[in-house]
Design a binder for these strands. Structure first.
Lengths: 336, 336
DNA sequence: CTGAAAGCGCTAACAG
DNA sequence: CTGTTAGCGCTTTCAG
């Protein structure tokens, strides 16, 4: 029943056609040079004619490797993870590896399951900013090897980690405001329990130590446009001249809200964002922000993964990524 | 050498521990009810104790299926494809399937290779807006079965397709401007050779037939913020009162450029975008645009794929997706 | 240098 | 109901 074209050609078919054994075909397909040139050619010809390609599943079973890595992210609609996924994917592709994705939809209890599942069908897994507790992570990590962690670290030093230094980035933004002459500064927070919000707060503690002349206040906010927008009144009345906002999206909401209230940026108030999203440069005014070098992050994640796949003796450093300032129109000296 | 913990537990280990054969363990793991309850329990216990999970590669080889689908996209940094990827991925995950990604980096000659490669390790592939010629597509499609096409169709009707009706969307935007009272309208084009630009132009042909009173002109543009921005002068001096822009990003660039020239939107000029990107609602003013129902697209793509994986007799309809108007502040009646 | 045979880990007929 | 056996498609010793 039309199964003719459906049956896929296997190594046996080309072996038969070339009049050699399975083994020889296998050797030729793998570039084993110990095969007699004329035989090799005959095999190549047969393979080409039958359009034979080795079945990856059979290969994987025999070799014990799949040339595939898994990547589990908390939310594929988050631009940061999209970007990491993309960069890991193209870096891996350059080495002939494919990427299997798993989205935990921000439910932390799914992470371990997805990661383990992924690990069984892949040669390694990249765990992106897992939400699980440190204890769970410590327990899970060894079972996932080779594993590359992004934005988390483990005690057991066998796992390479790539972490973005969010705290340092916000210190730089604060310092930028100070240099412009600001002394009264406010931080509009992100989600309270968010790890990256906590890192920013830690960075700010350091910041006020470095600049004792600064008066810093903290205003509750969020990570959404609406959260920024709704904080407009609180921000407008807080007395600060420079506002560090959790991220670009919230900063845009704030920008919008301030503009509706007739407060001019940067003349009346300086605003900074965080992340340098694609549209941060296109707000009016353009948003001063801290850019995370995500492209490097993805390709380095793959590099670390490859090191651990190929040589299990590989080093397991923690790589730090330093956000850098992107100064645009939303910051200026305070009104005299 | 430390291989102790590395050796993964196989079906044999649990068979030994439970004092039964491989086959019985397999039956239990697959929920085969013909197994004696007490034996089944013994096996479950042994499996649990050893933390045994069936090896997916072995399973795949035996069953001839991988519970994985491939998706090949032209560019993973394009928000549209990110969104499709995400939605396909979560829909597939609900049925226990995983997604393997391949990014052709917009080089059309890679598409066939990546798709074929993906098809060999997966149970099916979703080909997203392939850039290859129609002839190539017609030749490739049958070899990829089960295949789901997005934004392309094939003659051979065995391939399910999902296409977004870009032409119809721009007709709706045009009609909206006409209803507001605009008669002189301009279309700021996208990339000249882009298929979706061509579809918009076709839609506009129909549009001017439907509204003979409209004077439509076409201005060369692009799909980037800068392209929109650079078209500001051409747009300002073209005499039209309503501008249909290729997409939201270019529309934002145009918005910015017009604002710098003191041209007010929508008082002096009405502007529409296309795509309804996340930030389209947050420009000042909010951008009237056409929204493509992408979430439905991704999950329907998976549904079609599943139908073809499970029953090869499945229907292969072409599903059409109709963009809908998202009316915001950037459009208004023209100046009297 | 090549072929025969064993096995990767699992499922599924087929007997018992 | 359970165990034995034969593969799935490939790689890789091991003889020859």
């Amino acid at each position: 029943m039309a199964d003719r074209s459906r049956r896929r050609v296997g190594i046996g078919d080309v072996a038969a056609k070339a009049g050699v054994s399975h083994a020889t075909v296998s050797r030729v397909m793998n570039g084993n040079t110990t095969v007699n040139a004329s035989i090799a050619q005959r095999v190549q010809a047969a393979a080409a004619e039958l359009k034979y390609k080795p079945n990856p599943v059979g290969r994987s079973l025999a070799l014990g490797k799949t040339e595939t890595i898994g990547i589990v992210v908390p939310d594929l609609s988050n631009p940061t993870f999209q970007s990491i996924l993309r960069d890991v994917s193209i870096a891996a592709a350059r080495d002939g590896y494919r990427v299997l994705i798993a989205d935990s939809s921000e439910v932390s209890s799914e992470e371990a399951i997805l990661a383990s599942e992924a690990r069984r069908r892949c040669d390694g897994v990249v765990l992106c900013a897992p939400r699980m507790s440190q204890a769970e992570l410590e327990e899970l990590a060894p079972t996932l090897h080779p594993l590359v962690l992004i934005n988390r670290t483990t005690e057991a030093s066998s796992t390479p980690s790539l972490v973005v230094d969010y705290g340092h980035g916000i210190q730089k933004l604060g310092a930028h405001l100070v240099e412009l002459g600001h002394r009264k500064i406010a931080y509009l927070t992100g989600p309270e329990r968010s790890a990256s919000n906590v890192q920013r707060l830690r960075g700010l503690e350091k910041f006020v130590q470095d600049y004792p002349e600064v008066e810093l206040q903290v205003i509750p906010g969020g990570n959404t446009y609406d959260a920024g927008n709704e904080a407009s009144d609180a921000v407008a009345s807080c007395g600060a001249t420079g506002i560090l906002v959790f991220n670009d999206v919230a900063a845009m909401g704030l920008l919008h809200g301030l503009s509706e209230r007739g407060i001019r940026v940067p003349e009346d108030l300086s605003i900074t964002g965080y992340d340098d999203m694609p549209f941060a440069r296109y707000t009016m005014p353009g948003l001063t922000t801290a850019a995370v070098p995500i492209a490097q992050l993805g390709s380095l994640a793959w590099r670390r993964m490859r090191e651990h796949i190929t040589q299990s003796t590989a080093e397991s450093p923690t790589d730090h990524f330093e956000p850098h300032l992107e100064i645009r129109g939303s910051t200026a000296p305070p009104k005299a």
